[in-house]
Amino acid sequence: KVKIAGPGLGSGVRARVLQSFTVDSSKAGLAPLEVRVLGPRGLVEPVNVVDNGDGTHTVTYTPSQEGPYMVSVKYADEEIPRSPFKVKVL
């Protein structure tokens, strides 16, 4: 029921550039959304989540370095389908 889309989860994500993606939970009811961005060697990146007021949230983060990242998206305390997402930061 929760959908996710945006360039911040795709290929070609650049280090030190603001990345974003949208989480659409409009068909999933009200529940807490939790997003974690883990970088190389367990680095935890700050994440900004904005409630758009229409059942969607815009998530932004800036990867601080190149390497493999994991983006975990939980809704109602459960990983959404395909989460955690593997993101290769260049």
Score class of each variant (00 low, 15 high):
18 L>N: 07
60 T>Y: 08
53 G>K: 12
49 V>W: 06
85 F>Q: 05
78 E>D: 07
38 L>I: 15
49 V>H: 07
6 G>W: 05
74 K>D: 01
32 P>N: 13
87 V>C: 04
29 G>V: 08
27 K>Y: 07
25 S>T: 14
63 P>K: 00
64 S>M: 12
22 T>G: 03
47 V>L: 06
52 N>Q: 13
11 S>Q: 15
32 P>Y: 08
39 G>E: 02
3 K>R: 09
78 E>P: 00
34 E>D: 14
29 G>L: 09
54 D>W: 06
81 P>Y: 05
20 S>E: 14
77 D>H: 14
74 K>F: 11
71 V>P: 00
57 H>C: 07
48 N>V: 10
32 P>W: 05
46 P>L: 07
83 S>I: 02
36 R>H: 13
4 I>G: 04
47 V>C: 13
6 G>Q: 04
31 A>D: 14
15 A>D: 04
62 T>W: 07
7 P>Y: 07
78 E>N: 08
16 R>N: 13
51 D>F: 11
85 F>I: 12
52 N>K: 13
83 S>L: 01
38 L>R: 13
67 G>K: 00
65 Q>S: 10
89 V>C: 11
55 G>Q: 11
88 K>M: 14
21 F>T: 01
25 S>D: 04
61 Y>I: 03
12 G>H: 09
31 A>L: 10
3 K>Y: 11
68 P>C: 15
9 L>Y: 03
58 T>G: 10
20 S>I: 09
18 L>A: 13
44 V>D: 15
71 V>A: 03
34 E>K: 14
12 G>S: 13
33 L>C: 06
40 P>K: 03
55 G>V: 02
38 L>H: 14
27 K>M: 12
41 R>P: 05
66 E>F: 09
86 K>D: 10
25 S>Q: 05
72 S>P: 01
10 G>F: 13
84 P>F: 01
17 V>K: 10
84 P>I: 04
52 N>C: 10
65 Q>I: 13
35 V>N: 01
70 M>V: 12
73 V>L: 04
11 S>E: 14
65 Q>V: 14
10 G>D: 08
50 V>S: 14
83 S>R: 01
82 R>G: 13
24 D>Q: 04
83 S>V: 00
21 F>K: 01
79 E>S: 07
57 H>K: 09
10 G>M: 11
1 K>W: 08
45 E>V: 08
61 Y>R: 00
55 G>C: 09
24 D>M: 04
70 M>N: 15
30 L>Y: 11
4 I>E: 03
4 I>L: 06
7 P>L: 08
80 I>R: 01
22 T>I: 15
55 G>L: 11
88 K>W: 08
2 V>M: 02
49 V>P: 02
75 Y>M: 06
36 R>A: 12
50 V>T: 14
20 S>T: 14
76 A>T: 02
89 V>N: 05
48 N>E: 13
46 P>D: 10
13 V>M: 05
22 T>C: 09
54 D>Q: 09
8 G>I: 04
87 V>G: 02
85 F>T: 05
54 D>N: 12
21 F>C: 00
74 K>T: 06
16 R>I: 00
81 P>N: 08
27 K>E: 11
86 K>F: 15
72 S>D: 05
47 V>A: 11
42 G>K: 10
24 D>S: 04
82 R>E: 14
33 L>W: 04
11 S>W: 07
61 Y>S: 02
51 D>P: 12
29 G>Q: 13
66 E>G: 10
4 I>T: 07
60 T>M: 09
57 H>P: 01
77 D>T: 07
24 D>Y: 06
2 V>R: 02
43 L>Q: 11
37 V>G: 00
89 V>Q: 01
13 V>E: 03
20 S>D: 07
1 K>T: 06
29 G>W: 05
27 K>T: 10
34 E>P: 00
86 K>C: 14
51 D>Y: 14
22 T>A: 05
72 S>V: 07
72 S>M: 06
73 V>W: 01
66 E>C: 12
21 F>N: 02
9 L>M: 05
81 P>H: 06
8 G>S: 03
15 A>F: 05
32 P>T: 09
74 K>V: 05
80 I>C: 13
17 V>D: 07
20 S>Q: 11
63 P>L: 00
23 V>Y: 00
29 G>R: 08
73 V>E: 01
29 G>N: 07
76 A>E: 10
51 D>K: 14
12 G>D: 12
80 I>A: 06
64 S>C: 11
57 H>S: 10
86 K>G: 10
64 S>T: 12
75 Y>G: 00
31 A>W: 06
88 K>N: 15
89 V>E: 03
27 K>A: 14
27 K>V: 09
17 V>P: 02
23 V>N: 00
57 H>G: 05
29 G>E: 13
49 V>G: 02
23 V>D: 00
4 I>F: 07
56 T>P: 01
4 I>S: 05
19 Q>G: 01
54 D>S: 09
32 P>L: 03
41 R>D: 15
21 F>I: 05
32 P>C: 09
85 F>E: 02
27 K>N: 14
8 G>Y: 01
60 T>F: 12
61 Y>F: 05
6 G>N: 05
40 P>F: 03
83 S>W: 00
37 V>N: 00
34 E>F: 10
35 V>Q: 01
63 P>R: 01
74 K>R: 11
44 V>P: 11
41 R>G: 13
9 L>N: 01
6 G>H: 05
59 V>G: 02
76 A>Y: 05
90 L>M: 13
70 M>G: 06
77 D>E: 10
79 E>G: 04
67 G>Y: 00
56 T>N: 09
37 V>I: 14
43 L>A: 12
1 K>N: 06
62 T>Y: 08
18 L>R: 09
15 A>C: 12
28 A>W: 00
2 V>G: 02
74 K>A: 05
5 A>T: 05
88 K>D: 15
23 V>Q: 00
54 D>T: 07
69 Y>T: 04
55 G>P: 01
60 T>I: 06
70 M>F: 13
27 K>C: 11
55 G>H: 14
43 L>Y: 11
73 V>A: 03
45 E>S: 06
13 V>A: 07
88 K>A: 15
80 I>F: 03
86 K>H: 15
71 V>K: 00
2 V>T: 00
88 K>G: 11
10 G>L: 09
78 E>R: 09
81 P>R: 06
70 M>C: 12
53 G>L: 13
64 S>H: 08
19 Q>C: 04
41 R>W: 09
83 S>Q: 02
51 D>A: 11
